[in-house]
């Protein structure tokens, strides 16, 4: 993290001096440590029992899984976990499904409304949740969807759909149009081309958008905190706040929960990260 300005440009037939090699590795190791430390620290504290967090520098003493046992057995953690899973998966599936065909249409077809639609996708990403939260709250209240999975899934779609459509448009742009033409020559309808040829080719792009929607929904705090009012329906982002509040400071339990929350997010992440570079830059360069 330290040497951002001191770095040298790419050297192609690069033989570099010993010193440069050492410098390079030092910088990378230092940056890796900074990025790794909080994660390792939380894992470590979570294994130190309920009060172990009060002595962060003590390295001796037993490690144990008592915190994990406690949150799994005596709190509603598993319920919250299930809620988060339902909501995150629901909004991911819905978001990607709904936005893929639109992304394709915007990428391949020229039609009246094309430009305004692209602008909408971009502008909606700028919406602070503060603009939408109050109206959505009242609307969902009227529909009696507050404190329900469906309400939260729909809310998250307002975030994920424009982003997914925008990203997928960029990704579809990077797939040569000749493929479409070949499909058309072979007698596929435009939708058939999209479904049978382009969707399979766009798997990396779809993975990235799905990943993004999942992670966004998994980690969303503002909407979930207000919309899910009964403890039975809390998502993890709301539930975690109950461990550490004004009156309580159960950091031991918090860290154990943090580890368990991060594992699925991390798994999804590392499954998708293979495609991340391709998907992101395809979406990025064609802005």
């Amino acid at each position: 993290m330290s040497s951002s300005t001191a770095t040298k440009p790419v050297r192609l037939r690069g033989e570099r001096s010993r010193a440069a090699s050492v410098g390079l590795h030092t910088a990378l190791v230092a940056a890796s440590l900074v990025s790794l430390f909080p994660v390792l620290f939380v894992v470590y504290v979570s294994l130190r029992g309920r009060d172990g967090w009060q002595e962060p520098m003590r390295l001796t003493g037993g490690l144990g899984l008592s915190n994990y046992g406690h949150i799994l057995g005596q709190t509603k953690f598993l319920t919250w976990f299930g809620n988060s899973l339902v909501v995150a998966l629901g909004s991911t599936v819905l978001g990607v499904l709904v936005s893929a065909s639109a992304g394709y249409a915007v990428s391949r077809m020229r039609f009246p409304g094309h430009r305004p639609l692209m602008w909408t996708f971009l502008v909606v990403q700028m919406f602070p949740m503060a603009v939408l939260i109050v109206p959505l709250y009242t609307i969902l209240g009227q529909l009696e969807l507050l404190d329900s999975y469906l309400g939260l899934i729909l809310t998250y779609c307002s975030v994920s759909v424009p982003f997914c459509a925008w990203m997928l448009k960029g990704y579809f742009d990077s797939i040569p149009a000749e493929i479409d033409e070949a499909g058309r020559v072979d007698g596929l309808t435009p939708f058939g081309t999209f479904w049978r040829l382009i969707v399979p080719l766009a798997r990396p792009g779809l993975a990235v958008t799905a990943f993004y929607s999942f992670i966004t929904a998994w980690g969303e705090v503002a909407f979930a905190s207000q919309f899910m009012s009964s403890e039975e329906h809390y998502t993890l982002a709301v539930g975690l706040q109950t461990f550490v509040g004004q009156q309580k400071a159960e950091w031991g339990l918090m860290t154990a929960a943090a580890v368990l929350i991060t594992i699925p997010a991390g798994l999804v992440f590392f499954l998708a990260q293979r495609h991340l570079v391709a998907g992101l830059t395809a979406g990025g360069t064609k802005g």
Binding site: L36, A237, I261, T262, A265, F270, Q273
Partner: peptide, 11 residues
């Protein structure tokens, strides 16, 4: 180096 991205922001 990508690791922090995999951690949800609230965690």
């Amino acid at each position: 180096l990508i690791l922090p991205w995999a951690v949800p922001a609230f965690v």
